[in-house]
Structure formats: structure tokens, C-alpha cells
Computed example of a mutant assay.
Amino acid sequence: MPDALPTPSSDPDAVEAPIRKRPKPGERRVQILQTLASMLEQPGGDRITTAALAARLDVSEAALYRHFASKAQMFEGLIDFIEQTVFSLVNQIVEREQVAGAGATDVGTRQAAKVIGMLVQFAEKNPGMARVMVGDALVFENERLQQRMNQFFDKLEATLKQCLRDGAVAGATPTADAQVRAAVLSAFAVGRLQRFVRSGFKRLPSEHLESSLHLLLG
């Protein structure tokens, strides 16, 4: 989130107003997205308008549109962040577990469990992003935003299926249930995120996670 604003000077001789630094190129764009994500962290809040966002940033609505063509494009910026962060971490998990578990029959199961663990921890640390992920923040927004999140979870499920399939091949076991198990894991993750959002961020998605994954993957 943006750094805290400087506090006014208590020196009575300090009569000059502090000079407000002009944001560097690209910095204001990041500030807008950070502020939008912060506003989304208010559970049960009203639909965020560009007027409210501009007021929070202490700028005009016209200033917002110099950086984003529409509010939908702002949400797309958040979705870009979610996709890039999550799938970058997914790739790290897959590569790390392949090296650590070379030759082991349960490497695919470990990969899948760690991917789900990473996803729910990401949502837990970024509640505003969690609202975007489950579509709660996208109600009444452009339909393509929800379609992108649907594609995100489709890609996640495909990744889980590949992990489980590769692990099954390594262990010379049938791979037919990889798709079913991946679908169940994906639905489990979505359900945890939805419960987190609907509870006003009180029911943490990581609650009893290890035991739950053991039941699903054991």
C-alpha cells in the first residue's frame, strides 16, 4: 500500500507548506491499483465508484482516466497482478518439488498440495484480491472481468491435473483420476476463498488446511 503521508510540522516558524512531489511515470498508476485493492478490503462495502476512488487519492476523476481508460481496466490491472503472482509462484513450486522429490511416487501430490496452500495464503494476505478472485468485487462490472477470473481457475485446475498426472506416471499408477482430483481441489480452493469473503474475512481459508488436503489427497 502507499507509504504514509508526512505529518504536519509542529514548528511554529515552519510557515512554508511542504512541496508535494509529483509521482514518477507509472507511480500514480500503481498508487491507483493499491488504493483500489485497499478499498476492496472493506467487507460488505458499497460498490466502489471512480468518484470514491478519486476522493481517496485526493485527485480528480479525470486524473484517474489519464492512467486507465475505464474502471474495468483498473480491475484488469488487479487481475494481471493476481495472475502473474500466483502462476509465478506455481512455477517455483513445481520446479522445486520436482528436484526435491525426484524419483518419489508422491511428488505430484506434494506439488498439488503446495499449490493450493500457496493460493489460499495469497488470498488470506490480500483480502481485497480475494474478493476479485471469487467475483464478489466484480458484480455489476464488465462481464469480461469475471470471464478472466474463470479462465484463471481453469488454468489452475489444468496445472493441478498436470501435477497429479506426472506424479502418477512417475509412480507407475493409473492417471485416469488426475482430472477428477484436480477438479475437486480447485473447487475446494474456490469454496475456501468464497467462505473467507462471505464471512467478512473472519473465516480464514487456511483453517485446518493441512488436514483437509490430507483427506482430499490421501
Rank of each mutant, 00 (worst) to 15 (best):
67 H>G: 04
21 K>W: 10
75 F>Y: 15
190 V>T: 01
193 L>E: 04
155 K>M: 11
28 R>V: 00
136 D>P: 14
113 A>D: 06
167 G>K: 02
110 R>K: 12
49 T>E: 08
161 K>G: 09
121 Q>S: 03
120 V>K: 00
13 D>T: 14
50 T>V: 15
48 I>Q: 05
50 T>L: 09
176 A>P: 06
1 M>R: 13
120 V>A: 00
69 A>F: 05
154 D>M: 10
158 A>E: 14
31 Q>W: 13
93 I>D: 02
37 A>I: 02
171 G>S: 06
187 A>I: 01
34 Q>T: 08
16 E>P: 00
26 G>V: 09
7 T>M: 14
130 A>H: 06
84 Q>E: 15
107 V>M: 07
214 H>A: 14
17 A>C: 12
27 E>V: 09
17 A>W: 12
128 G>F: 06
202 K>N: 11
198 R>Y: 06
186 S>L: 07
55 A>S: 12
128 G>M: 07
83 E>W: 14
145 L>V: 04
162 Q>T: 04
13 D>E: 12
22 R>N: 09
200 G>K: 00
35 T>N: 07
12 P>D: 08
89 L>K: 11
153 F>E: 00
114 K>C: 05
57 L>S: 02
153 F>Y: 04
215 L>P: 00
119 L>G: 03
97 E>L: 07
131 R>D: 08
196 F>S: 00
80 D>Y: 13
107 V>C: 02
47 R>G: 15
166 D>V: 03
130 A>P: 06
157 E>N: 08
159 T>Y: 01
20 R>W: 09
197 V>M: 09
214 H>N: 15
3 D>F: 11
112 A>K: 04
96 R>G: 01
98 Q>P: 03
77 G>K: 07
174 P>M: 12
16 E>W: 13
81 F>G: 00
179 Q>N: 09
79 I>N: 10
207 E>Y: 14
195 R>Q: 12
112 A>D: 00
26 G>A: 07
32 I>C: 07
67 H>V: 00
149 M>H: 03
155 K>W: 10
6 P>F: 13
28 R>M: 14
105 T>L: 06
28 R>S: 02
135 G>I: 06
189 A>E: 04
54 A>N: 15
203 R>F: 08
35 T>H: 02
68 F>C: 01
148 R>H: 08
97 E>S: 02
45 G>Q: 14
163 C>Q: 09
139 V>N: 12
60 S>H: 11
156 L>M: 14
78 L>W: 03
214 H>F: 08
51 A>P: 01
29 R>V: 00
148 R>F: 00
64 L>A: 09
101 G>A: 03
89 L>F: 11
151 Q>S: 07
172 A>N: 13
5 L>K: 14
186 S>R: 03
157 E>D: 02
